[in-house]
Each structure stands twice: as structure tokens, then as C-alpha cells.
Simulated assay, not measured.
Amino acid sequence: MNTTRRLVDTAALLLMMVGTLWGFGLLGSPVNQTNGGALSAEATLLAPSTTAFSIWSVIYLLLVAYVVWVWTPSGGRSRRAASLGWLPAASMVLNGAWLAITQAGGLWLSVVDIAALALVLGLLMRRLMVRRPAGTLEALLLDGTFGLYLGWVTVATCANVTAAAVASGANLGRVGNTVAAVVVLVVAAALGVTFSRVYRGAGGVAAAMVWGLGWIAHGRLAVGPHNTVVGVVAALSALVVLAAFLRLWWRAESLRGSNELDGAVAAN
């Protein structure tokens, strides 16, 4: 990886962190208080409980670790990291931009931004699948970091779209709103299953999606707005994503064990 790429990644990280401070209310209003509270944990049927957003702390720490790592000799030599091009920097810029956009009150523009972020992360993960990680550290800082990032942003996109629609006055009535939320959750579960297959059972993606869907379930069943149907479907969606990942992981482990056994037999 060349020095220019490292500098751009570092600058993008700093820009994102400024946006994060803004979003946490240190340089402006907290995100959940902007746009009339449209992005709060109780604003819509697809808003995760407040605790769910703590996953951002993990993602940010991993992104910092990733940027530090690319400046090390091993990170600089990583062919997988080099293959990502400008995508990591783009993801961090879009992340910081989302926080600035929501502060400015542009809810629908924030939907465009987070959708672009999800697309960038999807492309990034696709590139990571071309080569296997060189070691545990590389797997953690690339697959783990951007897998968690993609999984959470996928769930957050669903919540963001719903928040923008509700804030714009969309209201289908209790039954209609419930049906719409269920449809979105089914789509999210289908995406989780697809990601597990396309990204060879990437654990980070599944973990973040299970986390997000689980906290949506908690919000509808224990916090509010209460909706038993949406809460149960969200919980089932989380289980479907988890089951899909575990199934593919178990198949991969079984195949690896079979290959090792065949190798041992051949050697004897």
C-alpha cells in the first residue's frame, strides 16, 4: 500500500471522528435529538433500542486499529488491504457526512448517504473475498472491521429509511405500519442470509445484523413503541441470520476437517 493511500485513510478517519463528536452532541445536538427526534430509539417500529448503538464504539475502535495497522510493515505489505483501493476512506467519509447531514436536518439526504455507504461496504467485502487473510490479525482488522460495519449499516439503513418516511408524514395505520415493518424485516433477514453465502459466512456481518435485529425486537417488546408482531418477527429475523451463518460455518468446518483427514490418510 502506498503512502498516499495511507494518508487518505488517515484523513478520512479524522474527518469521521469529527463527525462522530458532532453526532454525540459534543459539537452539536445528539443524533437522537435532531430532526424532531425522528432518529430516536422510540420514533418508529424499526428503531433499535438505545443500547444497540454502542456497536459504533466497537466499529470505530476497529477502524482506528485498521488505520494504525496500514502504517505498519505487515499492513503495508498486505495484498488484501491494497486491493481495497479507496473504499475504506470512502466509507469513513460517508460515515462522517451522514452525521453532518442529520445535524443539518436532511433526513432523506441521509438515506441516500447511508445507502451509498452500504454499497461501498458491500463492494469492499466483495474484494476481501478474493484472497484469504494472511493471519488472524489481518482477518480481524479487515474482515472483522468491515464485516461488522456492513452488518450494522444494513440494519441502520432500514431504520433510517423508516425514520425518514415517518418524519415525512407516512402513516398506513396500525395494521399497515405493522405489515410494512414486517416486510422490511423479512428483506433484512434475506440480505443477512445472502451476505453469509456471498461473503463465505463472514461472522462480522452476521454478528452485527443479529445484534441490530435483536435490539429492534427488544425495542418493540420492552421499550416502545410496543408492537408484539414486529418484535417477534425481528427476533425471528435475527435467528434466521444467525442460523444461516452457523450452517455455512459448520459446513466449512466439516469440509476442512474432511480435507485434513484425507490428507493424513494420503500421507500414511
Rank of each mutant, 00 (worst) to 15 (best):
T10D: 08
G263V: 02
G169C: 01
G122S: 14
L191W: 02
V186T: 12
V64A: 11
T50H: 08
L191D: 00
G214N: 12
L13S: 09
I114G: 05
N177G: 08
D262Y: 14
R200K: 11
V130I: 08
V31R: 04
L46T: 00
A266Q: 09
Y66K: 12
S168V: 06
L191V: 15
L7K: 05
S110G: 10
V155P: 09
A104I: 02
I101D: 04
V230R: 06
L246A: 14
L261N: 10
A252F: 02
M92I: 10
N227R: 07
V223N: 01
G231M: 06
N177E: 14
S54C: 05
V18E: 01
V112R: 01
L150N: 01
S196C: 05
P48F: 00
A65R: 11
S237F: 09
P48M: 05
L185V: 03
V8L: 09
M92A: 00
E138N: 03
A165W: 10
L172H: 13
M16A: 09
R200W: 06
T44C: 05
R6A: 11
R131T: 09
G28R: 10
N268E: 12
T157L: 15
R251Y: 04
L128M: 15
V240I: 13
L172D: 10
N268W: 13
R131N: 13
S237G: 15
L15R: 03
P225E: 06
N268P: 05
G25R: 06
L13E: 09
A163F: 07
R127S: 07
G105R: 06
N259F: 13
R200F: 06
L99R: 10
V233E: 11
G151D: 08
V120C: 11
R77Q: 15
V193T: 07
N227F: 14
V111R: 00
A188M: 01
L109N: 03
G192L: 04
F195G: 12
R79S: 07
A82K: 09
L87Y: 11
A97S: 13
G106M: 00
S196A: 13
R127N: 12
V166P: 00
A163T: 00
L62D: 11
V8H: 02
V175S: 03
L185C: 05
R79D: 13
A235S: 06
V175G: 09
Y66C: 04
R220I: 00
V111W: 03
V8M: 04
A11Y: 03
V186I: 15
V153K: 00
C158N: 12
A222F: 14
R256S: 11
L13G: 03
A100H: 07
W211C: 03
C158G: 15
T154D: 00
N171Q: 03
V229M: 07
A264Y: 01
G204S: 13
T20E: 05
S258N: 10
L148H: 00
L13I: 07
A118R: 01
W211D: 00
V153R: 05
T145Q: 01
S83W: 14
A252R: 14
G192H: 04
S258W: 14
T178H: 02
L61S: 01
T102M: 14
L148P: 01
L141F: 09
A139I: 05
S258T: 14
G147P: 13
L123W: 10
M1S: 12
D262M: 15
